[in-house]
């Protein structure tokens, strides 16, 4: 996968996790939704690791500092690697 497609895949999985997370706020006992969230969670970890190894950190912290954090595109940039 190139940078753009891995980023979009990552964003899609992240969104699924987020939406399930919100659903579980009001349905905390829904085991099926929790199971689905865990499936996406494992995809998310893999995609995040793959992206960060190839293209630099996405999250400020352990890996996200200095030029590796500062120089790649910011989310509002209209570049091929943006958003």
């Amino acid at each position: 996968m190139n940078r753009e497609s891995i980023k979009y895949r990552f964003m899609a999985v992240r969104f699924m996790i987020w939406d399930l997370h919100l659903y579980l706020d009001t349905h905390p006992d829904d085991a099926q939704a929790a199971q689905l969230l865990r499936q996406y969670e494992s995809q998310y970890s893999e995609l995040l690791r793959e992206y960060e190894q190839k293209y630099g950190p996405l999250t400020a912290g352990e890996t996200g500092y200095g030029d590796a954090w500062l120089q790649p595109a910011w989310p509002w940039d209209l570049t091929k690697e943006g958003c």
Binding site: M11, W18, L58, T59, A60, G64, P75, W76
Partner: peptide, 14 residues
Amino acid sequence: WDYQKTLQYPIRIQ
């Protein structure tokens, strides 16, 4: 909060 360098949904306005 921790900041993640992505939007929730992609934006590419030509």
